[in-house]
């Protein structure tokens, strides 16, 4: 019996490595362990042995069965690996570029906007939103802009067709519709809609009737901030802007207030910043934005009691910050959408 088993193992050892498909493998396997297989035939002889010899023979058969199974497993593994490799084809050249498109990129204005918004979110601001088509009331009147202020001129501000009605831009009365010249209009809509305290930032698109050049664009983006609470001071305004600019430009960034005039803030300031690694001459102050304490006239307009509430507002131009941070010298690149420009800030 053992001789038969040895020759079966020898046959398996000889034939299995030469097989090159699973079908051949199954076929060959059947000739050994199938119902009519040679190994099966040997196992059947046990029954004919005297009972005393049976345990030993059973043990022997089990030993050879294990050896045979190991040979089958190895062959099957080899054949499966070969089949998988054939299915996958030849190895790839890992240095060839992927023909699939890369992940998309956010526009630089979006990136800078989100960076500023997330800085300000850390100090309690939430993002507010308002329409791009505005009315003269929200854009000028409520912001204490004098009736005959030049900003209201047809020369400086876009107005919509006088007969066009806007279904979802509310008017105060029947004042003119215009394209908002600043996001400050969101201040008014927000304050009219909710009682204080208010701490909002309103990023958005604005329009001025300018001829496009390296520094002017028919539309541009601002972030307006408004904070109204009890006891908000000039010092808070400075502290929060310092926080913003240090977060944005590094801990060595400095800001400076310069008196200025805006109709909706009093006192009003322009903010200069300087930071060693950015400005060309190192120590030069660069003008970056406007700010101030909310004028009591604005509070009166929205029904906030200026004896109880005080607040500050600031507005910054996203393009201007982006251009300063990234060294871009022409605002028009931001609206040209050249793929080589877009990809630079991925």
């Amino acid at each position: 019996m053992e001789t038969d088993l040895q020759s079966i193992i020898a046959e398996a050892e000889a034939r299995l490595p030469a097989l090159d498909s699973m079908a051949q493998f199954e076929q060959f396997k059947a000739t050994l362990v199938g119902p009519n297989g040679s190994f099966t035939a040997v196992t059947k002889t046990i029954g004919k042995l005297p009972p005393a010899e049976r345990p030993l023979a059973g043990k022997l058969i089990n030993q050879y069965k294990t050896r045979l199974q190991a040979l089958f497993d190895a062959a099957q593994e080899r054949l499966q690996a070969e089949a998988e490799a054939a299915r996958l084809g030849p190895p790839v050249d890992v240095t060839l570029p992927s023909p699939d498109r890369p992940a998309g990129t956010a526009h630089l204005i979006t990136q800078v906007r989100e960076e500023i918004c997330s800085i300000l979110r850390k100090i309690g601001f939430v993002v507010a939103d308002g329409p791009e088509v505005e009315t003269e009331y929200f854009c000028f009147d409520a912001l204490n802009t004098p009736k005959d202020h030049p900003a209201r001129d047809l020369h400086d501000t876009y107005y919509t067709h006088p007969e066009t009605a806007f279904g979802n831009v509310s008017q105060k009365a029947d004042e003119r519709y215009l394209l908002r010249t600043h996001t400050s209009s969101v201040q008014i809509r927000t304050m009219l809609a909710q009682p204080p305290p208010v701490r909002i930032i309103a990023p958005g698109r604005c329009f001025r009737r300018d001829t496009a050049d390296a520094t002017h664009s028919a539309n541009f983006h601002q972030i307006e901030a408004l904070y109204v609470d009890k006891g908000v001071t000039v010092r808070d305004l400075k502290a929060d802007l310092d926080f913003l600019f240090r977060s944005l430009l590094g801990a060595d960034a400095e800001t400076r207030f310069r008196p200025h005039y805006f109709s909706y803030t009093e006192p009003s300031f322009e903010v200069d910043f300087r930071v060693g690694h950015l400005s060309k001459v190192g120590s030069e102050w660069m003008e970056i934005m406007g700010c101030g304490m909310v004028d009591p006239a604005v509070f009166a307009e929205v029904g906030y009691d200026p004896d109880i509430w005080s607040g500050y507002a600031f507005g910054l131009g996203i393009e201007r910050i982006a251009m300063t941070l990234y060294g871009i010298d022409d605002i028009r690149y931001l609206y040209q959408n050249d793929a080589r420009f877009l990809r630079q800030f991925a």
Binding site: D129, P197, I200, D236, F243, F269
Partner: peptide, 23 residues
């Protein structure tokens, strides 16, 4: 105006969320 002294940010948590449009 450049003599406004530096100060720490004072933040009071307000129950407000970002507007759904930007979200």
């Amino acid at each position: 105006s450049d003599k406004v002294p530096p100060a720490d940010v004072r933040t009071r948590g307000l129950l407000a969320e970002d507007d759904p449009v930007p979200v």
